[in-house]
């Protein structure tokens, strides 16, 4: 059989290499090729995986934004309704005075000024929301005053805090040197951390004086430090390590998505900053953010 085979192949003369030589080398060469193929496949899979991670990260951001927007909804309605009430009521005042024939220039000026002021307030709020929803790619990096970012985040959160009996203590050092940053991303850091601080009082039954403190300071030439503290429920030791994990939440489904801190850490890293959490169960939590001043582009590697 073997002989026949050899004979046949030799006779065909198609292969200049003797049959036995081919058989000798077939094993290692084939293995090498197989190894290369496998290697290529793995590389492709890795690339695909990286692509998928990028996509997931993007989806994570979008999901968190939408979730925050959902919880923002009630606050937004309240914040828009108040100036709208003024605008509509002042317009009624002017109309009624005309009808009653007692229109006074002085009073009309007051009314119109109030209308203008409230329209401006609504414009600011809508601007803020628009920026918040907008896809990240649309807003670019620029020089930013952190105090302004904090104040913007409070536009919606402050009224909610006050109505829930939470005292807000602001200690913003002014003027702060501007940092190089991304407005939307910085905004969402404070939106998330302050929402968490606000939520930390939700299940408390005692009558403690509920407080949230925000402090900004400038550490000469180097960095800006922002601390956000609450005297709410605090974080117990056994979950401290998990709070930054995506989807980790101790809240009910309609309140928490568990994406807030995961996103926050991402955003802070992109600004080359650090986040430090100090918390004691039932006493409160303090989040310390440090953002460097040096002007460099966004940190893409993290």
């Amino acid at each position: 059989m073997i002989m026949d085979d050899l004979h046949f192949k030799e006779k065909k003369g198609a292969h200049p290499i003797p049959v036995h030589t081919v058989e000798d080398h077939e094993e290692p060469l084939g293995e090498l090729r197989r190894f290369e193929d496998e290697n290529n496949e793995l590389r492709k899979e890795l690339e695909l995986g990286e692509e998928r991670i990028k996509l997931l990260k993007k989806e994570l951001k979008q999901a968190n934004k939408l979730a925050t927007l959902g919880t923002m909804g009630a606050g937004v309605a309240h914040e828009l309704n108040n100036p709208l009430t003024v605008i509509s009521a002042e317009a009624d005042e002017i109309l009624d005075s005309i009808v009653a024939g007692r229109l006074s220039a002085e009073q009309t000026v007051v009314s119109v000024k109030n209308i203008k002021q409230c329209a401006e307030r609504m414009r600011c709020l809508i601007d803020y929301i628009r920026q918040y929803i907008r896809r990240d790619e649309d807003t670019s990096w620029s020089k930013i005053d952190i105090n302004v970012i904090v104040e913007n985040a409070l536009l919606i959160l402050k009224p909610q805090m006050l109505s829930q009996g939470i005292e807000l203590k602001l200690n913003l050092s002014k003027p702060l040197p501007q940092i190089w940053g991304h407005k939307t991303k910085l905004g969402s850091i404070f939106q998330n951390l302050l929402s968490n601080a606000k939520d930390s009082f939700d299940d408390l039954t005692d009558t403690r004086n509920r407080q949230i403190k925000i402090e900004t300071t400038f550490v000469a030439t180097k960095e800006i430090i922002i601390t956000l503290s609450d005297n709410g429920c605090g974080i117990s030791e056994n979950i401290k390590e998990k709070i930054f994990d995506p989807f980790f939440s101790t809240k009910q489904a309609d309140k928490g998505t568990g994406l807030g801190l995961a996103m926050t850490i991402e955003n802070i890293k992109e600004h080359r900053g650090t986040l430090y959490c100090d918390s004691k169960e039932n006493v409160g939590s303090k989040f310390t953010i440090s953002l460097p001043l040096e002007r460099r582009g966004p940190n893409r590697k993290h």
């Binding site: 108040n82 009430t85 003024v86 006050l162």
Partner: peptide
């Protein structure tokens, strides 16, 4: 009302 202008309008009226 915590909104001063609203208080002001209602007062006037």
């Amino acid at each position: 009302d915590d909104e001063e202008i609203i208080v002001d309008i209602l007062m006037r009226r």
